[in-house]
Design a protein around this nucleic acid. Sequence first.
DNA 1: CACGGAACAG
DNA 2: CTGTTCCGTG
Length: 378
Amino acid sequence: MDCSCVSDILLTPSVPALWTPGFAFPDWAYKPESSPGSRQIQLWHFILELLQKEEYHDFIAWQGDYGEFVIKDPDEVARLWGIRKCKPHMNYDKLSRALRYYYNKRILHKTKGKRFTYKFNFSKVVLVNYPLLDMANSSLLLGQNPFPGAHPHDPFTPETLQSLFSSTSRAPLLDRPITAPDTEKLRLEATFPFLGSGSGYAKPPTLLPPYNRNSPFPDYSWGFNPYLSSSFPLSGSKLPTSLYPPQFYPTSLSQLPPPLSLLPGDHMDRSNGLLQGLPQRLCTSLNPHPVPPRGGADLSSIVASARRERAEQPEGKQEPDSDSDLEITDVSDCSSEAEGCVYSPPCPVPPMGKSKAGDERPKAEAKLSLEKATTPTS
DNA sequence: CACGGAACAG
DNA sequence: CTGTTCCGTG
């Protein structure tokens, strides 16, 4: 039996602007082998997807501070999630349970007092994906925050980040085979714990499949990571070494366009290699985005704010920054690969008469089959 | 509604 | 491991 449910909602790689895959991480980072059980899309990921598309704004949308979102229609969101996971009996109660599991992982936390309102931990992402700051600083964000609910001075809004991570244009830079020695993988995982399940280490040194110019990037979806492992030794001294081996960089850092003139005396500066360690693709490319450039937030403020949040970290529980916990294993999905659930026949869907007897909701539903076939997007 | 334990599935 | 499913508690 195969649940041929799964809608393709959100699965379509047809949204160029936001879904260009192949962002920072090498293919193997998303390999299922490294994370047996966690191949499927993760809830937070899904939530982000919904949040990203206006089509679903009636059901779930950003609201409040950055990272904060409210599930306006719990039943609907649950239903969507159920469809996605082929769990026809999904409901908000269950979905919220899953969401609650994120508390300890610090991927999410509840905005107390506000019903159905949760908040992502975004700042960490910024810190970790350092180069993003570059992009942000140079082209996208520039302090301007076009997103609703975002404060003008808050450069890193979830959506901003999303856009960031899904830059459309691919830098011509990495166009050569990428190979990743096992050791690097380890290194990478050390840096991005969520990339691996942590249990996938024992893999033999494999090389990445040859990079193909024609299909530059596998289907790993957007590589966005709203949450980062708890601890980045920012405070200290040593940050993880480069994420990618030098071979990854056809050009040397020096060739990069002077990005954000480096971190303002931050702990993380080139010396730790973080910056140079990141795929240039990330740093250099970023298509001209809709965001009107405007001067504003700069690295230091971003970092500062991120730090602030990090510092604030309440909850006495949770490990002391040990971090290696938290595993947002994979970020893949949204690929067209059939994974268990094939999303061919658009889920017959709502067997569950869902309270709101069908109507005024065709939007999402329709989109289901629509997105797939047509892609008017131009 | 929100929380989190427990058993269980893939 | 990430959820899913149930469920008792507040």
